[in-house]
């Protein structure tokens, strides 16, 4: 049994004005999420990610198709006890304190008093908001709101967690925090389904990925499967104690060499030159700081499917 099963789901919005054609948001979308995995739902803005999530949570009705979660049809009240949800850019009751806020959702999920206060203590600890416990949400920063929102989604210890753009608008530290949280959930055997338009989020933590473009699933599978289309991977080397741009043998191989203070960044187009370049660096007395393989194929796939003509270099950071 899959954690989420979506089969041939279409969603047409009634036009805002009679006579206009209906807007198709989903055109026969099918996907499945296995239990215990982290599934990244990737797509550009307006591809239908949020619509899909809304249909999963029966905030919206599909025009046609079949939707199941944890083996029950969408809309089943009991199954919602086992699901946690964080909407995109959440706005919560700002008159509540963090504690009251979590208690409210815990009550709705049917938690009893004793267990509820234990869960609240635990989750505030996990999301790092223990000190903000009695502060009203209106005084929270955006990152804090996102974290308390996550705590809300997890208050009843759900088997399946659905997150809509959980990392958007967060600073790097905040993103790392959320990433760690999601990985921690998998360690507990939970299923995590999250949507995003940010590729590195997916690449780093997802077991499997689905790419939605214009209401259809364009590709899905393991991340390494999706990127192993014969594309060569580029590599970035960071080293110190050497001025690499003054070494002609290195600049000849590299696509780019940047000197930033003591650190030097060398971008190589082919991973098979890595050993040669590393040897040259060591020979000059330099020390290796890091080697990062740059996977760009997901991005290429993403933009190709989106019919976007923007040429994107595989090493461009998003």
């Amino acid at each position: 049994m899959d954690a989420i099963l979506v089969e041939e789901v279409t969603k047409k919005f009634r036009p805002g004005w009679p006579g206009l054609p209906p807007v198709t948001a989903l055109a026969g979308l099918s996907l499945s999420v296995h239990k215990g995995e982290i599934y990244g739902f990737l797509g550009p803005n307006g591809a239908g990610k949020t619509t899909t999530l809304k249909i999963l949570l029966s905030l919206m009705r599909a025009t046609s198709g079949k939707v199941e979660m944890l083996g029950k049809p969408a809309g089943d009240l009991e199954v919602r006890r086992r699901i946690g949800f964080l909407p995109e850019a959440p706005y919560f009751y700002d008159y509540l304190t963090a504690e009251e806020f979590l208690a409210f959702y815990g009550h709705l999920a049917g938690l009893e008093r004793g267990e509820l206060s234990r869960r609240i203590d635990h989750l505030l600890e996990v999301v790092g908001l223990r000190d903000a416990r009695t502060r009203q949400l209106r005084k929270f920063s955006k990152g804090m709101l996102q974290r308390v929102g996550l705590a809300q989604a997890l208050i009843h210890d759900p088997e399946l967690v659905i997150l809509d753009e959980p990392m958007s608008g967060l600073d790097p530290l905040g993103r790392k925090h959320v990433r760690d949280l999601i990985l921690g959930l998998r360690d507990q055997g939970k299923t995590v389904f999250f949507s995003t338009h940010i590729i590195p989020d997916v690449e780093m933590i997802c077991d499997r990925v689905g790419i939605i473009v214009k209401g259809k699933l364009m590709a899905s599978g393991r991340v390494d499967e999706l990127v192993s289309h014969g594309h060569t991977q580029s590599v970035e080397i960071v080293c110190e104690g050497i001025k690499a741009d003054e070494v002609p043998s290195i600049t000849a191989l590299a696509t780019r060499v940047l000197q930033r203070g003591r650190h030097c960044l060398v971008a190589l187009p082919e991973p098979n030159q890595l050993e040669d370049v590393l040897a040259m660096i060591r020979a000059r007395g330099g020390r290796l700081v890091s080697v990062t393989p740059q996977k760009g194929s997901l991005e290429e796939l993403f933009f190709k499917e989106d019919d976007m003509t923007v040429s994107v270099r595989s090493d461009t950071k998003v």
Binding site: K54, L57, R80, R81, F85, P87, Y91, Y105, A109, Q152
Partner: peptide, 14 residues
């Protein structure tokens, strides 16, 4: 309008 209804409707409540 504030989309707070999303998180509530995701709970076991009709």
């Amino acid at each position: 309008e504030r989309r707070t209804v999303y998180t509530i409707m995701a709970r076991p409540i009709s």
